[in-house]
Design a protein around this nucleic acid. Structure first.
Length: 325
DNA sequence: GGTATTTGACCGAC
DNA sequence: GTCGGTCAAATACC
């Protein structure tokens, strides 16, 4: 199973790389390979996924799954699950989703329990399944989104979400290898915008950032506020939060909303949702991506936060002098 | 000089 | 007492 997962992750990584190259085809970037090389890359991706498929198919038993799931087959089940999620996302895009429109996608226990798979998109929340919830003074809603760090170029940068943020703190978090960065809206003072977020690398996948948003932006509502095109506020339904904003054109694939703090406490059913825009733009890659939550690179400017070499001495990279490099 | 980041200290929830 | 979140002075950058 681990081998299959590893292959799938490899496939996702290759797909992301390919996507990045495709997006940059029109640019003058000399690092973008020629189309025939990209075609070869496609073959490689197919090969990797085929190998993963073989391993999945050859797996005799899937104890965590129900009889129905075993009968249908894991592969088919995953496919239908993702289709379901994508259909749902399309429904939500057509009409602003009332909470009743949300359909929970069932998650097999073993998948849910697997940290690796949780990091890949099957989780309601990763924040506190094992730790008890700490109720905060400002009991504002939280939305946790996982975004992929670039794997080429500056891998330290979480994707730009269309807003400008000012960092106001950083803290070592118990049990986490990487410190958490605290950000608030740049226009907090000027427009009293309450939006905040904190950003943290996942322990088990340093190429993924977990971004937790708290409060919505109000700055873009101000007639005088400088505004990047504001993403629509995430829909909220049944304790789950849906991120619907469109990823920037720099091309990150995965926007996974893993749920609210309350959802993580209650341990409710996991829900996989998926933005229509993303699905339409990158249907194949994103099918894999929504399953395994990885993303593509992008460039923005949080260089000072995350180190390129995350494997080892990440602590050094978090030091102040990073910024000067 | 204005703005952003860093970082130790502080506060409040647990 | 511990820990996550925030503050604010110091520092860096443009």
């Amino acid at each position: 199973m681990e081998e299959a997962v590893s292959l799938i992750l490899r496939g996702c990584s290759l797909a992301r790389q390919l996507e990045f190259n495709v997006l940059n085809l029109g640019s003058n970037n000399i690092n973008v390979p020629q189309p025939h090389l990209m075609a070869r890359s496609c073959d490689e991706i197919l090969g990797v996924f085929s190998a993963a498929k073989e391993r999945l198919s050859s797996h005799e038993q899937w104890p965590p799954f129900t009889a129905v799931q075993r009968e249908v087959g894991l592969e088919e089940w995953l496919r239908s699950t993702c289709s379901q999620a994508m259909e749902l996302a399309q429904m939500q895009t057509r009409s602003p989703a009332p909470s009743s429109a949300v359909v929970a996608v069932p998650v097999p226990a073993a998948v849910e329990d697997s940290g690796k798979l949780i990091a890949m998109g099957f989780s309601t929340s990763s924040s506190s399944s094992s730790t008890k919830a700490r109720r905060r003074k400002d009991d504002t809603e939280k939305r946790t989104v996982r975004v992929a760090a670039p794997r080429i170029g500056n891998t330290e940068l979480p994707p730009d979400d269309g807003f400008t943020w000012r960092k106001y703190g950083q803290k070592e978090i118990l049990g986490s290898r990487f410190p958490r960065g605290y950000f608030r809206c740049t226009h907090q003072k000027l427009y009293h915008c309450p939006a905040k977020k904190h950003v943290q690398r996942l322990d088990d996948d340093p190429y993924t950032f977990e971004v937790t948003y708290r409060s919505d932006h109000t700055c873009h509502m101000s007639a005088t506020a400088p505004s990047a095109p504001p993403p629509p506020p995430p829909a909220i339904a049944g304790g789950q939060h849906i991120s619907q904003f469109r990823p920037p054109s720099t091309g990150w694939l995965s926007v996974e909303v893993v749920g609210s703090a309350s959802a993580s406490v209650s341990g409710g059913p996991a829900t996989v949702r998926y933005g229509k825009d993303v699905a339409e733009q990158f249907p194949v890659v994103d099918l894999a991506d929504v399953m395994f939550n990885s993303g593509t690179g992008s460039s923005n400017s949080m260089e000072s936060i995350f180190a390129a070499d995350v494997a080892d001495d990440h602590h050094h990279k978090w030091k102040k002098d990073d910024k000067k490099n």
